[in-house]
Write a protein that binds this DNA or RNA. Structure first.
Lengths: 125, 125
DNA sequence: ATAGATGCAAAGAGTTTGCATAGGT
DNA sequence: ACCTATGCAAACTCTTTGCATCTAT
């Protein structure tokens, strides 16, 4: 990642602006507002570079392909709407999960995903 | 799912026998011991039917495609060892997670995965 | 001028579907 | 005999890669 290109800036700022993790296609759509000719392969290549550079963090939800968000956010979890499939950040954390592990195990980190309906989908229904 | 076929029995019993969740390819390999000509498409079709019939439950770990296990196990979570990658069941649950969702959202279910070192790997180290 | 970055299209990997046929009832 | 379930292959989706071209340095 040696050069500063219009495409890379557009991808970076699309992720920065988003209030939630974006899928590669969502990144493409958002960044094309700035660079219409942007290709999906470029999005994938830059996501990989930005993750390696720790500017962007991959969000891996159970059974779903990765989404991407800014890496500077502190510890949080995710909520996925079962209707529209969008993913939202959840800033609370149940904490103290270490004691849930079987005896003799140590817990380093955890992932929690809530599933349900988001406010938008509940209003529409 | 109206008929009882050799293929379906082989798939069902492969999952019943396994001590861990199996990927579609692992199901295929295990069931081909019984029905060598079994095709992967039949595995996918039957996994879908068995999940719908609640005989089999999909196990979705973050960043991994679904695996399948017998459905008779009750609500539980998973612990994945970061050293040996094995997955263990965790029978406790933090509960009361609904209040973590943003206002106006409803929570239907949740998935929790703990990551750390299992007792076996800690002893070896 | 050089070589990294891009866009397109083709190639892979995993999953689903169309269709003719086998086989459970 | 009927019609579900199967096997094969093609189609589909998502992601990666090859290659010619563009462009930041």
């Amino acid at each position: 990642m040696e050069r500063s290109t219009r495409q890379r800036s557009a991808i970076r700022s699309a992720i920065e602006r988003a209030q939630r993790p974006l899928s590669p296609l969502e990144v493409l759509a958002a960044a094309q507002a700035e660079v219409p000719a942007l290709g999906l392969a470029t999005v994938y290549r830059n996501l990989k570079l930005l993750v390696d550079a720790q500017e962007v963090a991959p969000v891996t939800l159970p059974g779903d392909s990765p989404r991407y968000e800014a890496a500077h956010l502190k510890h949080h979890h995710h909520f996925q709407c079962t209707a529209c499939e969008r993913v939202y950040d959840v800033h609370q954390c149940p904490g103290n999960l270490a004691r849930m592990a079987p005896p003799g195990f140590t817990v380093e980190r955890h992932e929690l995903t809530l599933y349900g309906r988001c406010a938008t989908c509940l209003e529409t229904a």
